[in-house]
Design a protein around this nucleic acid. Structure first.
Length: 672
DNA sequence: ACTAATGTCCTTTTT
DNA sequence: GGACATTAGT
């Protein structure tokens, strides 16, 4: 094991946390204060103290964060990158998945369950919804997405369906009974098909912590629990943490209440606020030194968060040297905004900055579209994060559905997806076939399974069973090979349905390549459903590309130069965020965006966006116009729009304002 | 029962 | 501009 000079490599506050005694600890860590570093060193310190690494559980918020943290622990301990670390670490969902595969039997959860992602969940709810209220036109029924959210929120907050409905979509309260019926049926169908959704993973893990035998196993397994991003845990997760730490009481959680941005997913800020009451003799620590950003950027962030009703008071101090003030730019349209960003990027590149030192952040995944086109036009490589993931793309899911059937032939969602790809098979026939398929004991029985169907459906079924025959007989072979069989069969449909089939074909080839690295079907299916694997979908980790990301996805990351675009009154705060709490969360979201930047920060917004129904004009985000104007450098339009907004006037740019072209948005007043 | 064509609505964030 | 629901036709 490497020798680590803890005292030298950490600041005083971090050192205190890392080397603190046992028992419960709450660490309030501001943005950029070395939160991850502290957690990583804490794990290493415990190990240096002679703690068996297997006794440590490290819970994080995203798989990316987990991967990075495990890597850093390894490096710190002097282990090779490829070496396996006996310490368990991951997201709540991925740990739950591992546990349930092993110990689910104690609470009647089959070990070979399939995980439903959000999209799968919606399709199952859609099937059920159709069945239950066939006579009612859809416009009078809540959408599957709405039902899904209501159920999810209820489970994760541990409240009733009624309370969840009242809180989230009170206008649907009159149909509560329908929600309950759908939910009940949803539970039944999941059970029959051996399906677990994301919420079930947490729900059953909590159940495991209450079951005597499983509880003992977990207590023997972990004596030290470390949790990152605690401000974004939900009620269920907090209960799991509480139950897990009852025996040994060695629990250390890190979080920042100013960065709580997941309440839509039932994150409960009370978890962190009430931690000291819930855990007796809890020690409170604060990390208030920011190592990331320049004082100018921090001033802006602090000024923004002043308007937030925050419970724990922190005062973030910068240690970096002063630099330029952040720049605020208003542009006449979203096209101009894209030119502006692209011009600035090329300017920074000319200063010698690398593409991967820059990121463009935005509120919603589709806000990047115009910019993407512009970057493509200029031949600038970028990596898109947020929005549809590789494994959520329609064609990828189609191919995966075959593998899922192979792994669990009762998977209703996968069957329904595949069957309806074929001519002559719609929802009704698909359901009929599925019901018959339930008679099968084993997927192998499918080889001599006979069905009577109408002409078109019958010929489709024979094509389906032909492929299944091939797959079943090669079941134990390399997964990449299986995927190739499926692609061969599927490509005809792909070319017909999608004009951009070439690109999609590439995706599938990548999938085959990726799949060939797995030894077993179970392992493969397991991992993809929680998206634990990186580097798929056209980009790999170490590509030198500009990052385009939603603010949510950017959480925990940092870049020397950050652009936050589309900061209009119609997107930040998002118009659907109406309540005071939601507005406060939008403010924290912008806070997270701003605090990602180390040296350069550009905030911009278009005054108009061209859409299908003509130009629509916008005003600057209220979060911007309320800020102290001395904190920015403004371009001409931005200063006019800001003054107008402060006087409560809508600003429309003067048509005589000099119109600029791409390449003409170089710095007006750049000071460096 | 399914498909193709027409009409209508909304447009967030994610494990 | 696109997802999705409804409607008319096979």
């Amino acid at each position: 094991m490497l020798k680590i000079d803890f005292k030298k490599e950490l600041n005083a506050a971090q050192y205190e946390v890392v080397t603190t005694g046992l028992g419960p600890h709450l660490v309030l860590a501001g943005a950029g204060s070395g939160k991850t570093r502290t957690l990583v060193y804490r794990a290493a310190w415990l190990i240096h103290q002679g703690v068996n690494p297997e006794k440590i559980l490290l819970l994080t918020f995203t798989n990316k964060a987990a991967g990075e943290m495990m890597l850093r622990v390894k490096n710190l301990l002097g282990l090779k990158t490829g070496a396996s670390l006996p310490l368990w670490g991951g997201t709540f969902h991925s740990i739950a998945n591992r546990l349930l595969r092993a110990y689910g039997k104690y609470i009647d959860v089959p070990s070979d369950f399939t995980i439903l992602d959000t999209d799968d969940k919606k399709s199952l709810l859609k099937i059920i919804s159709k069945d239950l209220l066939a006579n009612l036109p859809d416009r009078h029924k809540p959408s599957p997405a709405l039902i899904s959210e209501t159920i999810s929120f209820a489970v994760n907050s541990q409240i009733s369906l009624e309370e969840s409905l009242e809180y989230k979509f009170s206008e649907w309260l009159p149909m509560l009974e329908y929600f309950e019926k759908v939910n009940k049926e949803y539970e039944t169908r999941k059970k029959n098909a051996k399906l677990l959704d994301f919420d079930d993973l947490l729900l059953y893990w909590r159940q495991l912590t209450l079951e005597t035998r499983a509880k003992k196993i977990m207590e023997d397994k972990w004596e030290y629990i470390l949790v990152d991003e605690y401000q974004d845990t939900n009620t269920l997760q907090a209960e799991i943490v509480f139950n897990l730490s009852q025996k040994h009481k060695n629990i250390l959680v890190v979080g920042d209440d100013a960065q709580s941005i997941y309440s839509f997913r039932a994150a409960n800020i009370q978890n962190i606020l009430e931690f000291p009451e819930k855990f007796k003799n809890c020690q409170l620590h604060k990390l208030e030194t920011n190592y990331r950003s320049t004082p100018e950027i921090l001033d802006l962030a602090n000024n923004l968060i002043v308007g937030s009703p925050e419970q724990f008071k922190k005062n973030l101090q910068a240690v970096k040297d002063s630099h330029v003030r952040p720049e605020l730019a208003a542009l006449r349209s979203n096209t101009e905004e894209a030119w502006f960003v692209a011009d600035k990027i090329q300017y920074l590149l000319s200063l010698g900055m690398r593409p991967n030192q820059m990121a463009v952040l935005f509120r919603a995944a589709h806000h990047s579209q115009t910019l993407e086109m512009e970057l493509n036009r200029r031949g600038l490589a970028y990596e898109m994060r947020g929005g549809l993931k590789f494994f959520e793309r329609a064609h990828v899911k189609d191919v995966l559905a075959w593998l899922k059937i192979l792994g669990n032939h009762r998977d209703e969602v996968a069957w329904s997806r595949i069957l309806q790809l074929y001519e002559g098979i719609g929802p009704v026939t698909a359901q009929l076939i599925y019901q018959r398929l339930l008679e099968l004991k084993n997927i192998d029985d499918l080889l001599d399974f006979k069905l009577t169907l109408a002409d078109k459906a019958a010929s489709s079924w024979s094509r389906i069973s032909e492929l299944l025959g091939i797959l079943i007989s090669h079941k134990t072979e390399n997964i990449g090979r299986l995927v190739n069989f499926i692609i061969e069969h599927y490509s005809e449909y792909l070319e017909e349905k999608y004009p951009d089939y070439r690109q999609r074909q590439d995706d599938l080839d990548q999938l085959a390549m990726f799949a060939s690295g797995y030894a077993s079907l179970e392992l493969f299916l397991n991992e993809i459903s929680l998206q634990e694997s990186f580097g798929l979908g056209g980009t790999s980790q170490d590509t030198d590309a500009i990052v385009l990301s939603t603010v949510h996805q950017a959480k925990g990351l940092e870049w020397p130069a950050v652009f936050v675009i589309n900061l209009t009154n119609q997107s930040f705060p998002h118009p659907l965020a109406v309540s005071e709490e939601e507005q406060a969360e939008e403010r924290r979201l912008l806070y997270v965006a701003i605090t990602r930047a180390e040296h350069y920060l550009y905030l911009s917004y278009p005054l108009a966006i061209y859409r299908y129904d003509g130009y629509k004009s916008f005003q600057p985000s209220p979060f911007l116009t309320e800020l102290d104007s001395k904190l920015f450098r403004y371009n001409e339009l931005a200063s006019k729009a800001t003054y107008a907004a402060q006087d409560g006037i809508e600003y429309v740019p003067d048509p005589d304002t000099t119109v600029r072209k791409p390449g003409q948005f170089l710095p007006d007043v750049d000071e460096w």
